[in-house]
Amino acid sequence: MIETIASLELPVGEHLAIRRNRLCYKEDTKSLGRVAVVSGTHGDELEGQYICYEVARRIAAHPEYLTGIVDIYPALNPLGVDLASKALPITGMDLNRMFPGSREGNAMEQIAAAVMEDLIGTDLCIDVHSSDIFVQEIPQVRLSGEFAGRMLPFAKLMNVDVIWMNATATVHEATLAHSLNTMGVPTMVVELGQGNSINMPYGNQVVDGIFNVMHEMGIWTGEVPPTQLPAISSDGKVEFIRSDVEGIFLPRNKHNHFVCVGELIGEIVDPMAGQVKRQVAAGKDGLLFTLRNYPVVYEGDLLARILTGIV
């Protein structure tokens, strides 16, 4: 059943509405387990659109296997999705830095508070993000160190390639995941692909993981495809490669590929002069799990990440 959980009137003949599709085929819902799949907090991260679709499609194809509640929130920032804008188009603010929101605050803070209220009581929340528009990522779960102990058993079931503990700002304060975890709702951030696009093989991999988790939780009784165990990493095992010069970055290696020390990852070039300004090489052996696709770079921009310490 599709319900509007929050709505506010916009100036001219339109509402900003946050909708949730509740999938449940039982009469008495009080004692049922509940999983939420949340996406579209950043409007330029569209991998979650496919994941939401595929979860809903598989459940609709076999409703007899669903013994709990699955709530799907495809777009927490619907105007952003419409405009391919990471931020909230009206204010330019990042919705994922506004949680837990406030019922007394401005309109978007009230929306954030309404989302939080709707998610309270969920047994597991999966917050799906793409990478940004600059780099591509393999499917991974990101956990903050604070909640890693509780979330790791769930994360291992997600069929991702990597679990990155104490990762980036996506799991830090004022985010949906951090706020929900603080309020006792187990929440993990899944990140994959790249902004403004959909990688269906990655999406299917994560959807298999979602059904695997639901199966373990007793919410899904259907068969689940075989899943893999992820590599587990803390920040210390991740080698960041950043640009030390401005220019145009040309990737010279494959994403999701094992690289050795000294192997060329990319080049930063000067289009005006036709010169290579920097050759960027791997500093350590490992899996090239992040690779920049967006060409224009400044000093400090992320070019690649290598997951070390795995064989």
Binding site: K86, G92, D94, R242, V296, Y298, G300, D301, L302
Partner: peptide, 25 residues
């Protein structure tokens, strides 16, 4: 309003660091 192509609010990037993204630097 915000900085760069990734639209970062510099007044939410403190204290920063010398090795991260440009806004942090």
């Amino acid at each position: 309003r915000f900085y760069g192509v990734d639209n970062v609010d510099l007044n939410r990037a403190f204290p920063g660091n010398s090795y991260g993204e440009q806004d942090r630097r």
